[in-house]
Amino acid sequence: MKPRAMNYVKPTRRRTGTILSLAALGLAALAPNVLDSYTRHVLMLAMINIILGLGLNFTLGYVGQPNFGQAALFGFGAYTSAILAMKMHVSFLVSIVAAGLVTLMAGYVLGYISLQLRGAYFCMVTIALGQALLLMASNLLRLTGGPMGLAGIPGPKLAGLLSSTYSLWLVALGLLALMLLVTRLLERSVMGRAWVAIRESETLARSTGVDTFHYALLAYVAGALFAGLGGSLYAHYVGFVDPSIFAFSWSSMSVVAVVIGGRGTIWGPVIGGLLVTLLPEYLRVAALWRLPMFGLVLILIITFMPDGLVALPRLLAQVRSRGKTGVALPGGGGD
């Protein structure tokens, strides 16, 4: 992947950008009033997937390590909220904040363990930790309800007026906006640059004095916070959690989202999260065949656009400029 240039943005353009963003946010906040319940449901799930992807993007995209264990943190957040809300009857606000903080701490521990390793071994440990949590959730009957899971998690009622789903929509939207902002800030901070340095060459980064473990751990922990909040949202929205939330398929779907969207970019997880949620839904017309078709689409996108869909405009521009100069550059192929 190419390092992206830190574009200087003209102040006026930046101001219109802010205004546009705020307008979009306002529209999104009002959207549930005009959307049918199915579309609203799908978009809500998409927001949760995007939140999950934004969190994963720190280790996977910026630091460049194959993290296939994001579901461990997502599940941690979901179970924390489920247990707090059902067994201790805490309010939604307490539940989600606690889920975020508890997952952040869990992330510190899990990250500390798994980041001792890199590459394929890191990948394996992240998978193993997810599986270990899955089995624990299935067996700690008293706390987690075992394989049956916990059902009947209450949703919030914001200001006592809005419905639970609308409240969750607003919370999800707010968190999402905040997370995008945080990602942008981190990306441009010393930390973001350290992450990219690790991705390009960890040895080199270390030799120039970057404490690579420390920064990688911070990426993991930031991801844990996002995942914990997302998990809590999910638990309160769906009202039900069971051990399958820790499954490899959740983790891998999130990796898919980040990669087909575009690793190490802000909009990558957004595009990817929308796609992995909407695509299987729209493929539903193909009923039975939607999952194989999804697999096929996944292979095609990754094979032909390993940098993700955010790179599409650049690819198109390349194709167009080649078309304009007439003959393609001679030679080329070979190795």
Partner: peptide, 19 residues
């Protein structure tokens, strides 16, 4: 390509073959 990319392509295959 990086391991993430190759792994995901085999993941796509696994979805196809299993389903």
């Amino acid at each position: 390509q990086t391991m993430v990319v190759t792994t995901l392509v085999t993941l796509g295959w696994s979805l196809i073959l299993q389903n």
